[in-house]
């Protein structure tokens, strides 16, 4: 269970792009429960924000502190830039567990159950690099789950997926949000409405609002209104 002293905090983040501040003194305190959706127009810094949060990019200044279940979380991160090892589907899924020394039988059981849940059984021996764009993204999502993370950071997990796969992922996220914190970037406002407990809206590197979904959808902020009306890209 998530305890009260758990937190996801970004404090005073400065990030320079071409010697200009993209994030200037950016701070945020995210909910430690449920699904936080990060929304914003193109180039607003959504992906950059979660890459910094994941620790893949170092900000020039600032502090990131994440504590879930009173300890450093096990993070599953899905990037937009999908890369697979030169191995088959099964071995791509087993890799994150193998390098952490998981038991072979456990690895087999875990992967089989995930493949079964996500209707991906039968593709274990195909080279992951040979899959279609959609399947690659789907497989990449499955790969983020293999080590049973308690913080899932997703960058547009369903941008290339068909409706059925999108639904399956959304169903999984809604079911699992009791057991794990989910932070997700999406462009799809309808998806945000379906999934979000909390919404962070960012524009041009500035966090405009972080609020509960219902409050966000009724926001009086001019930019948010414009975005919700589909007039801010």
């Amino acid at each position: 269970m998530i305890k009260t002293n758990d937190h996801i905090i970004l404090k005073g983040i400065n990030f320079l792009v071409n010697k200009k501040f993209f994030f200037k003194n950016l701070s945020a305190n995210l909910s430690v429960k449920g699904i936080t959706i990060i929304l914003g127009p193109n180039g607003s810094g959504k992906s950059l924000l979660i890459r910094i949060l994941r620790g893949l990019i170092q900000a020039q200044d600032g502090e990131i502190s994440i504590k879930l279940n009173n300890q450093r979380p096990n993070i599953g991160y899905l990037s937009q830039n999908i890369t697979f090892l030169r191995r088959n589907v099964f071995r791509n899924l087993s890799y994150p567990m193998e390098i952490k020394g998981y038991d072979r039988n456990y690895i087999n059981d875990r992967i089989t159950s995930l493949l079964k849940y996500f209707h991906f059984l039968g593709k274990e021996n195909i080279s992951a690099r040979m899959l279609s764009k959609g399947n690659k993204q789907y497989l990449s999502f499955i790969r983020t789950l293999v080590t049973q993370p308690n913080l899932l950071i997703l960058d547009e997990p369903s941008s290339n997926l068909d409706m059925e796969s999108t639904k399956r992922i959304e169903k999984f996220l809604l079911k699992q949000k009791k057991n794990m914190k989910i932070i997700m970037v999406t462009h799809d406002l309808f998806q945000a409405k379906r999934l979000a407990d909390e919404i962070l809206f960012i524009n041009e590197g500035k966090i405009i609002e972080i609020s509960k979904k219902d409050k966000f959808l009724k926001s009086s902020n001019r930019l948010i209104k414009k975005f919700l009306e589909g007039n801010l890209f």
């Binding site: 893949l56 890369t83 090892l85 994150p96 390098i99 080590t147």
Partner: peptide, 18 residues
């Protein structure tokens, strides 16, 4: 592979072996 390695916090020796 850098992103995979960073994402899964792969140790240097495992990065080399992989």
């Amino acid at each position: 592979y850098k992103e995979i390695f960073d994402n899964f916090e792969v140790k240097l020796i495992n990065r080399i072996i992989t």
